[in-house]
Every structure is written in C-alpha cells, then in structure tokens.
Write a protein that binds this DNA or RNA. Structure first.
Length: 483
RNA sequence: GACCCGUUCGUCCAACGGCCAGGACACGAGGCUCUCAUCCUCGAGAUCGGGGUUCAAUUCCCCGACGGGUCGCCA
C-alpha cells in the first residue's frame, strides 16, 4: 500500500518552526518510502483564519525545500484540500452518524456542563463529559425540528478503552472515562477540527499521521471516529514538542517561532532543514552535518526521540555558518546580494557587485548569518563610519600616526594595486618602523574600514581601490592631526 | 486535580543487557594568524532517586520525584 502522509496546519498564524519540523519529518518519511506527501489546510476556525497565513505556510515550506504531491496549491485527486470548502461532506458524515445512533444532538446547557466538570474535578476524576444529559432521540429530534440549534456530539462507547501503537511512543491506552463525548458539528452547522481532520484523513486515504504530541490525547477521539466511519485508523506518530531555553513551550518570548523570521535573519534553508531534522532525530552515527539524501535514506519514525527538545539557537547559528562556508562563492554572492542591498537601502551598481564578489570569499568564512554579510561589507559601499570604541582603542596609540603616514606614502607609490603587492609594501613598512603587525596594522584597519574587526586588511584595501583607500588614510591622518 | 507522555554532559543526539558512557553546540586553555572569524590540539562536563530482575544494567520491571502535554461548540 502506498504511504500517504499529510501536514495540516491551521492558517491562524505564520508557519511555526515546530510545524515546519513536523512537515519535514512527514516529507522525509514519504520520500524514503516512495510515498505521497499532502499539504492540507485545516481552516475550520473561520474566526481566526487569514489568507496571508495560508500563503506564508506555502512559501515557508517551499523555502525549506519541501514539495508535496497533493495539496491546497497544487490540487490532486481529492481536491479541494481546504476544509472550509468541504463543509457539505462533514455535515453529511455527521448526519449519517446521527442516523446510526453513533452521535446525538446535545442540549446540555453550558451551565450543566460547567457544573459537571466542576464536580468531576472535585471528585478527583477527569472532567470529560460522558453524555449523561443526552436526551431520548425522539425528544431531541422534536427540539431540532422546532428550530432549536444544538451541536452534535459523538457518543463515545462506555465503558471502553482505546489502545493504539504509536510509531514513536509504542503502545498507548486511554480509558474512555478520559474521553468526552466531543462535539463534531457545532450548532451553526460547521465541523470541529476532530470531525474535519478525521474525515479528511479517511477520505484522502492517509496511512500515517505524524503530528505534535499536543494532539496525543485527542487520538482516541480520532480512532473512535474513524472506526465509526467504517475505516481502519492510520498509524499514528506523535512528535515531542519544541521547547524554549527555559524548558517551556517554545514561544515568542524565546525569540522567533515563525520560520519566516529565521529566513529574514539570514538563515539558509539547508541549515534550517539539517538543524530541524536533528532536533529529535539522529541518523544513527555521530553525524551532525547530514545531506538531504542521507536523511531520506535513514529516516525512521522509530528513531525519533520521545523527549521534548529544546531549540538551541547557538547550534543553529553554528550550523548555518557551516553551510554558508560550504556554498560556492558565486552562490554565496547571489544569496547575500539582496540582503546587502536591503541593508544599504539601494541596489548595487555593477562595479559594486564586482567588489562584493571580490571580498566575498573572505566574509563567507566569517558569517554565521547572511545578514552579517551586509554589516561586514558596508564599509566598501559607503563612507567610513568610525566605530568609537575602535578609534579609541588603536588610534590614540603613539604609533598610529606614523603607521598611517607610512602606509599612505608607501601605497601611493604602488604600481600594481593587488593584494600581494599591498601586503608586501605594508610589511616592509612594518619592518622599517619596527612595529608588530598588530600595532602597525590595526590603525590602518580602522582608517580603512572604520573598525578593529573587519575582513582581511590587504584584501579590503585592494577591493576598496587605490583612490578610496588613500583617501581614507588621508582622512584618518587629518582627523588624528586635528585631535 | 485527573489522565497521557517523558527523564544520559548546560543543550541536541549515540550507546537498544556486556570495551575507561561516544559525538556535536556552547564553555575553558593553547596553537595558527594583520583584527575578527575559520581551522587544529587539549580540557572540564551526564546516566533523577529508591527498589527489584540478571553473572552483568544507561538499557528490562515497579515505586517516587521532577518536567511536558491534554482536559472548549480552538486547532
């Protein structure tokens, strides 16, 4: 049987990294088994849905490099893949369940329900509504006929229990005393998540449901419903949730939760995928940098960790740096250019593009995020901005004025303006002045780049060009003289 | 409170009854070096507690503690 998996986010917010990870695991699982990956939109909450979120889900998933065989934007044999467009189907199922006596109109008042839950809680029981206020079907039918609105609840078999084998957790059992007679159709006729999601999984022939652990306790509901529909339940796999550094559920206060925020921060999709994959799963050996092909080949649900995992930004950054360094230089330039232009607030001229390409290899090995590139090369494309601390640290030394003056004089005589020549003449200068590289070069670095931290000095000087480089040395000399 | 899930270095993963419990990030020290990075070497750092089972438990079982999740006409 063909493996069919799905990811079914609700468009009520930007794609969460946890959802992205679940999507990745589903994708890897399908890929490795020649299966089908489906993107569905569980948009049954008309209050909170927003088209912009649905768009973000699609673009974020594609940015990660994931693709799907069937889904909201690509169609497929079971289209539409959007729950808001399938209301009739859910209503039909609800009515069928009603007719077969497996579900019922509920006329319990909110007060009754509250009171029941309060008492259950007080008595040390789980406050799961057990259907005790259910009306005799004739009575209920009459009230409905009279136009009284009421939700439909599923009649959970009592007593009873549901046991299933979770692919990551093993056998899990829930006594039905813990499972309420849940609402499947709201009194306004709209389906709840439980109904819509289960019906879709059945209709779309989903074989494996890989989702967050937050839905583990709802799984018996879905199994009972599935069986009521006369279908065989899929294999379930519940992924542990992502936590913040403090061990609490990952949320905004820990940093970013939206995948698009990482993208905006200059994180490479390759790095994000690698990091997310290893956050709760391991290919077996002590490998850290793993290719997509390798992941596909090795991924198994049984190897997914059962513990909640903490999202570690430091490790993500480190890994991102590794991937940045692995990029071919022209690819690196292509990816960094938009961010540089954004930082500058303007497009780069052709000659500037060449300058960027020339310095690129040197900033490539210094960047952990693509956004850092813009900061590191800014000195090339605008006026120098002296970093106050840097100036204070190296320009107030006695050797600063001499070094700058000597460098100016030396560089001015240079025939060939290239890194080896620049380095040679500056090192000669060092020898003549009897200065250490540190003492002699740091003032030049600040003069030329504005900071004590920069790409390599000689390359920076070359890329800047003779005129600009000399002008900057002169400007620094003037400023020193004035001070 | 009830139920469910979980518990190996600070963090993420290995070890799925048997070599000094391994790797990565972070951290510390050193080396390379024109700064910062990269890179290299070294170091510190963990099996939650208690009972069992076994010749042998990180690994299997039970109890406890702790952490997480769920208890809606949200998903």
């Amino acid at each position: 049987m063909t493996v069919r998996v799905r990811i079914a986010p609700s468009p009520t917010g930007f794609l969460h990294v946890g959802t992205a990870r679940a999507a990745l695991y589903n994708w890897l699982f399908a890929r490795g088994r020649n299966g089908v990956f489906i993107l569905r939109s569980d948009d049954t909450d008309s209050e909170r849905n927003d088209p912009k979120y649905q768009q973000d889900i699609v673009t974020s998933l594609r940015w990660l490099g994931l693709d799907w065989h069937e889904g909201i934007d690509v169609g497929g044999p079971h289209a539409p893949y959007q729950q808001s467009l399938r209301s009739d189907r859910y209503r039909e199922v609800a009515m069928d369940l009603l007719e077969r006596g497996l579900a019922y109109y509920c006329f319990a008042t909110p007060e009754q329900l509250d009171e029941f839950r309060r008492q259950a809680q007080a008595a040390g029981r789980t406050p799961a509504y057990d259907g005790r206020f259910r009306l005799e079907s004739g009575v209920a039918a009459a009230r409905v006929a009279a136009g009284e609105p009421a939700p439909i609840r599923l009649a959970v078999p009592r007593p009873g229990a549901t046991t299933f084998h979770d692919a990551v957790r093993g056998e899990v059992t829930f006594d039905h005393a813990q499972v309420e007679d849940f609402v499947i159709l709201r009194s306004d006729g709209s389906p709840t998540y439980h109904l819509a999601s289960t019906v879709d999984d059945v209709d779309f022939e989903v074989t494996h449901v890989v989702r967050g652990e937050d839905i583990l306790s709802s799984t018996p509901k879905h199994i009972i419903l599935t069986e009521a529909l006369g279908a065989r339940p899929p294999v379930y796999a519940h992924l542990a949730l992502l936590m913040g550094p403090d061990g609490k559920k990952l949320s905004k206060r820990h940093g970013h939760t939206a995948l698009n925020a990482y993208r905006a921060d200059g994180v490479l999709p390759e790095a994000m995928v690698n990091y997310l994959a290893l956050l709760g799963w391991s290919p077996g050996e002590d490998e850290t940098i793993v290719s997509l092909e390798e992941m596909v080949a090795r991924f198994r649900l049984e190897d997914v960790t059962k513990n909640a995992t903490i999202f570690d930004n430091d490790k993500l950054e480190w890994m991102n740096g590794v991937y940045i360094r692995e990029l071919a230089v022209d690819d690196f330039v292509a990816r960094a250019t938009p961010l540089v232009e954004e930082h500058l607030g303007r497009a780069l001229a052709v000659s500037e593009g060449e300058q960027l390409a020339a310095i690129a290899p040197h900033v490539q090995e210094r960047a952990k995020r693509l956004t850092e590139v813009a900061e590191q090369v800014a000195f090339i494309f605008g006026d120098v901005e002296y970093d106050a601390a840097s100036w204070e640290k190296v320009m107030t030394t006695p050797e600063a004025p001499t070094a700058i003056a000597a460098a100016r004089a030396g560089l001015a005589t240079l025939e060939d303006w290239n890194t080896p020549a620049i380095e040679a003449i500056l090192r000669d200068m060092l020898e003549e002045l009897e200065l250490s590289a540190r003492k002699g070069f740091q003032p030049l670095r600040v003069a030329v780049t504005g900071s004590t931290v920069s790409p390599p000095l000689f390359e920076s000087i070359e890329v800047l060009g003779r005129d600009v480089a000399l002008a900057r040395l002169e400007a620094a000399a003037t400023r020193l003289g004035a001070g």
